[in-house]
Design a protein around this nucleic acid. Structure first.
Lengths: 359, 359
DNA sequence: TGGATGTGATCAAGCGTTTTAGCAAAATTA
DNA sequence: TAATTTTGCTAAAACGCTTGATCACATCCA
């Protein structure tokens, strides 16, 4: 009332900084009173309703009042009316364990934001009770849908409560693919790309150090290796496939066996193995890429980009997984190809494979 | 009505799996009707109100109805009434750039959850418009407060809108510390711990390769180095402090200068420099830790734990920063020590420093 | 001049909860 | 037996917003 009288005379209310009373936020009604209109009118102005008929003069008056009072809409009230929130839930089983999960979050967050959604995240660290609570919380907040993600690519059971909402599996998949949508990395294509880097480098005799741990990645990356060889007309030689534990020690430990194979290039199951292999090769007086070329998998920046020489590898597209998960959830990707989307793993070429001088 | 009649006879309604109609979620009123009571009663039962007088028999009837119908409270409605949500906002300037930010999120998430809060995150990647929108969104959702975090420790300006809510700076601080609370890593203590690892290893002549980039970490880590020396009664020799760009190349490039200093140990500004230094030393035929001992800073797992030999270093407590931020926000830490809390950086000893055999 | 059309804004119902005040019946006391 | 207290439950007013139905008035066309 008071401020209305004070300002009703001047057309352009100065954009004064506002004293904010946090205890009692400004409401629609107060704005309406200040502007001398009904709450309905204010609502229409705020939401820029297309076919709302509001005089330009009134519109300005309302906007001034809003600025003047420092009004913030109450999203809770808004959502109550609309019945659905602008949230997308993301439950992850391990933010802690790895830098990877962060990228899924990041991709999901960016894409969600692009479409006006905010991310509600929960980290369960594998704890099933926590997971149940997290999903319940998200359901109570009437999220638009839930992204259920794992930190490494694997099959997973779909928690029952997840089905109370729209959901998409990210970096994991259900054995029963008919009742759930999922987004996963294309391991086979990645393995093929990795191998192709070496083929392009002129190598014909290429070893593959696979992991000992069973996983979709183990099979996929091997298949990609075989596919690439086949496409290049090189017969697959099983004796060139070694196996080791997928870490630095594993790679280091595989050196000796590898050297017996007399190859000119190696494709490692992951970057950490490659890192260990670097040490092993060096100790044997071999230089990379001249004596032996190496590619990894994962593109773990901190490792791959900073080894000497920098490691050629293939990216696990975690950012893209998150983003694609959101798109799938919102039905934005016109993917007629069913419930499982595979995201490609792009090659990242660095100096661990020499450029091929025409043979 | 129908289901009420069906069940009103039997005391214990079997816990039947429920057909869930996602289009029209079950409401309090429906539960009330099914149980033959008022919504008030149902609400009272759900919230286990202490001084509500409800007959045990009624209570059970309501609980049955809830289970039976698969009722989920609507958090929006709840919050509308209470005027405040159970959200804590986290705005980060770079989830992408580094594995670190993920840890802040993780710590914040765990601690928030512990107190019944959910995390609403926004990644601004340094974009100010995005940041403004993100904060606005959080304010509209009536978050309990906002954690404003940066991916590396630095001074920052506090966005105006942030002040419309409770907030805590995490991993950053305002030049004007009187108007804002902040949680940061204790760089000086960390630098001291790092140096002490070497001192305990029996080293007296210790070089420090600092960064060339100005930052609180640069000053703090140097101060810690000096403090440790002083405490050990070793005079500070400025010529033992080198500077290089804080990455692998920088560390590698500093090798030559370092070797001129004739030291038995080096403390590097960060793990990436140490990683480069490893290469440089190796090329010079020096072995770690026998010829020269090395410690880093940051404890970037993928690097530090997997170098050969594994790198002794000091942890940047990102998880703790996030958790402490939440505690500070909620006023749970009885920290009488003002607006700035420093979190300690614990030493992580590995094999890059030999154990001291009594001199 | 009067019906039709268009314009600018308001009314009021409703979204799903919580919560206070209060009512009726049962239990207790005097 | 009557007065009082206790017990069990409900009515109804918020909370802050959206939206379809309406209304008063001005303009237009014939």
């Amino acid at each position: 009332m008071i401020s209305q009288e004070k300002n009703s005379g001047s057309a352009a209310t100065p954009d004064v900084p506002v004293k904010i009373d946090r205890a009692h936020p400004v409401t629609l009604r107060e704005v309406a009173e200040a502007a001398g209109v009904s709450t309905a009118t204010v609502s229409l102005v705020i939401n820029k309703k297309k076919n709302a008929r509001i005089a330009e003069e009134t519109r300005e008056r309302v906007k001034d009042a809003i600025r003047h009072l420092g009004y913030r809409p109450n999203a809770m009230a808004k959502n109550l009316v609309s019945g659905t929130s602008k949230f997308i839930g993301l439950v992850a089983d391990g933010v802690a364990t790895t830098p990877f999960a962060g990228q899924i979050i990041h991709g999901a967050q960016d894409e969600a934001w692009k479409h006006g959604y905010a991310l509600l995240i929960a980290n369960t660290e594998g704890n099933l009770d926590l997971e149940k609570d997290a999903i319940a919380m998200m359901l109570e907040y009437k999220v638009r849908g839930i992204l259920y993600s794992t930190w490494f690519h694997r099959p997973t059971d779909v928690p029952e409560t997840l089905r109370e909402s729209d959901f998409v599996l990210v970096n994991c998949f259900s054995p029963d693919s008919s009742t759930s949508r999922a987004v996963v990395p294309d391991e086979a294509q990645g393995g093929q790309s990795a191998t192709e880097i070496l083929l392009r480098g002129g190598h014909r005799r290429i070893a593959f150090i696979n992991t000992t741990t069973p996983a979709p990645a183990k099979d996929g990356r091997l298949k990609g290796y075989q596919d690439a060889l086949e496409a290049a007309g090189i017969p697959f030689d099983p004796s060139l496939v070694l196996e080791a534990y997928p870490d630095q020690e594993g790679g280091y430990g595989a050196t000796e066996e590898l050297l017996k194979r007399n190859v000119s290039a190696v494709y490692c199951y992951n970057d950490r193995m490659a890192m260990g292999l670097y040490d092993g090769l060096r100790e044997n007086g071999l230089s990379i890429p001249d004596d032996i070329a190496v590619v990894g998998f994962d593109n773990q920046e901190v490792i791959a980009a900073h080894l000497r020489p920098p490691l050629s590898t293939v990216s696990l597209p975690h950012y893209e997984l998150g983003a694609a998960g959101v798109r799938m959830l919102l039905g934005l990707d016109k993917s007629p190809d069913g419930n499982l989307v595979k995201i490609s793993c792009p090659a990242v070429e660095r100096a661990s494979v020499a450029v091929h001088s025409a043979a």
